[in-house]
């Protein structure tokens, strides 16, 4: 569950005022809004990468407003994927597990399991610069899923993909949602993403968030 209450955020000259919304546990929420409306700013604040001036953020009933990003238990996929360029796909997937101090054999098993479910097993020993956009997106998703987070924050995860790859990614995201039952907040400005994926539709406009009826598939 993601609950945002009276959130105020400032990012340079831009600001969000008294933003409030709630996403029930296990929902797939799509947040839409025009370019520059503050979607990424809001997502970064929920992830703990940007400080809130005022307000409260709770995840699964726990107030995380003052918690560090790592303590929030969020899987984050930024718009540009931001894969770790010096690491192989295998190392990217296992990064969070290594930081947590998991045993090597457990990391290996989890990475192979993730790679199989995302269809990237043949890519495990490649470096990010040798991946296509769709492949890089799968790796970024796998890296975020490695720690089995209760909440997933996806920032324009399908940007820059061709129509076929987009369709494949819709199916993959639906499968991930069904499998993990994580609460997902997916930021996009493509209505097709909302039509394909959303169980809840939110719109960010004029510095505030309002709920809209979920679009028909």
């Amino acid at each position: 569950m993601i609950r945002v209450e009276q959130l105020n955020v400032r990012a340079g000259a831009f600001s969000l005022h008294n933003v409030s919304f709630e996403i029930v546990a296990g929902e797939y929420a799509v947040l839409m809004g025009r370019t520059g409306s503050g979607k990424t700013t809001l997502l970064e604040t929920i992830c703990g990468l940007r400080r809130a001036v005022a307000g409260r953020i709770s995840l699964n009933g726990r107030d995380v407003t003052e918690r560090s990003p790592g303590e929030r238990g969020i899987g984050y996929v930024p718009q540009d994927r931001a894969l770790f360029l010096t690491m192989t796909v295998r190392e990217n997937l296992g990064f969070g597990l290594r930081v947590r101090g998991d045993e090597v054999s457990a990391i290996q098993a989890r990475v192979e399991n993730l790679a199989a479910s995302l269809g990237i097993t043949p890519l495990l020993d490649r470096k990010p610069h040798a991946l296509s956009g769709g492949e890089a997106q799968r790796v970024a998703l796998g890296r975020a899923l490695a720690l089995a987070p209760g909440v997933l924050c996806l920032d324009e995860p399908l940007s820059g993909l061709d129509d076929d790859t987009r369709g494949e990614m819709h199916s993959l995201l639906r499968a991930i949602h069904a499998q993990t039952r994580a609460t997902i907040l997916h930021v996009t400005h493509h209505i097709a993403d909302a039509q394909q994926l959303a169980t809840k539709l939110l719109r960010l406009q004029d510095g505030g968030v309002r709920e809209e009826p979920a679009p028909l598939k």
């Binding site: 970064e44 992830c47 703990g48 990468l49 560090s68 990003p69 790592g70 929030r72 969020i74 899987g75 984050y76 930024p78 540009d80 931001a82 894969l83 770790f84 360029l85 990064f95 969070g96 930081v99 947590r100 890296r143 975020a144 490695a146 720690l147």
Partner: peptide, 10 residues
């Protein structure tokens, strides 16, 4: 952003 992702991963 790579560094930010690392922060979210603990």
């Amino acid at each position: 952003r790579s560094e930010q992702v690392a922060l979210t991963l603990g």
